[in-house]
Design a protein around this nucleic acid. Sequence first.
DNA 1: TTTGGCAACTGGCTTGAGCCAGTTACTGGC
DNA 2: GCCAGTAACTGGCTCAAGCCAGTTGCCAAA
Lengths: 256, 256
Amino acid sequence: MTDPDKRLPSRRIADDLRASIESGELASGAKLPSERDLAARYGTARNTAREAISILQTEGLVVAQHGRGVFVRPRTPLMRLGSNRYSRRLRGETGLSPFRIEVTKQGRTPKTECRSVEPAPAPADVADRLGLEGGEPVIRRENWYFADDEPVQVGVTYIPLGVAGDSPLATAKVLGKGSIYARFEDVGYVITRIREEISARMPSPDEVTGLAMPPGVPVIEVLHTSFDADRQPFEVTRFVMRGDLNGLDYNMPIED
Amino acid sequence: MTDPDKRLPSRRIADDLRASIESGELASGAKLPSERDLAARYGTARNTAREAISILQTEGLVVAQHGRGVFVRPRTPLMRLGSNRYSRRLRGETGLSPFRIEVTKQGRTPKTECRSVEPAPAPADVADRLGLEGGEPVIRRENWYFADDEPVQVGVTYIPLGVAGDSPLATAKVLGKGSIYARFEDVGYVITRIREEISARMPSPDEVTGLAMPPGVPVIEVLHTSFDADRQPFEVTRFVMRGDLNGLDYNMPIED
DNA sequence: TTTGGCAACTGGCTTGAGCCAGTTACTGGC
DNA sequence: GCCAGTAACTGGCTCAAGCCAGTTGCCAAA
């Protein structure tokens, strides 16, 4: 009995390539056969081989480089952002932000850049977390995080005017030693609890360009709220990070 | 000066459609023009219109239905799995699992199904969290979670043989009242801390079929570890959930 | 030795054609 | 009134061809 192999040609090529990748036959970073090559091997049109590669691309397994070839996407180690990133002790001991520590640990060079500090209307979800009216003006701080000049995440922080006042939080791009939470302490807000709401989705076209997202890679969105000793929210930050470079690591007690 | 509109035809169509979706002109669930229709309107080949739709699909904005059309993907409300899902008090008060509460709150019908309970070798990352050798046998429990018979997440729990013994944890698919953590308490393990490691990625082909993943939707993977009063790990669960239906909500104190 | 340019590779995108396979609504026969 | 069949729609997939645009290495001219 001949097995006609019911699978469609494009699927068959994609399945074969995927198997080669998963078995390690095509190692991380390895070059796949060219589209024209695959088409010839499988006796299909070039478009069909192309479709197969497109499937693997949306699965995040490979990346194409114009003029060079298609390569197995290297699985870069995840940057683990821990719940201890707000720890006061760590802040004091090292003087380095957890982001910098993580990136350095991976032998890469960290860089952070504050792109803007300005009043702006609060997005609805943010206003909701801060107990404000939607659209009410707040201080908006936009921060970009890089590893070896590659963007890995963006964080947009929203601070009520009543909290920021005319402190550096509202005016200075560079906040000095001890991260932003030291500055919050300066104006009387000590972070004692946090809430983090996490979701994952595909990036918008803007995010694709801004974060140089490879195809087939989602973003992780974290909506972070900080609470002071009175359990009042005093700051919300929305992080958007490349899913292939970032992971979250929470370690916490069970309450009750 | 004539503006030749440098954008490629497929991009142009995709951009126009995306704009219509974001403006609300094409509402959630609305039907897009057919491929042949779009091609005619823009004066391109059908394949080009098709390519445009494919772009929107990988962005997770639309879903195609064979024979029916292409529709704006409804943004279903996220199911927020909170860190309180391990709370002992909630467990006692309601008798319902947080999953059931959440699904019911959305007016949908929850269902959970234990597909298998059997000894199996521990995956490397799991063994690592449990302080075991890789490949060492553990009890493996596979649970599926549904809302209106639609699969929303899978959880695979790994329990060291020394913990499970021959208790129901190792033998019974149905664990009775008060969730699995009540059974752990029965054998002397009280959950006092958890660690959750979160990442996001595109689903594997198996996950696409198992979870009925729409195109352009990532999965959230949570590697959960439970610690007892002595800070010893006694259980690891790997959750894989549909990114379009699930979100995580952590509320915790800052330690130190 | 250096440098400029070309040839031969790579993927990116489009065309226009065809056939297949779901879905839907209408229509004619019972 | 019901039901089966069919026509006209939808997307799914493939083909064969062409042109464009990056990349790379080689080779000849300066």
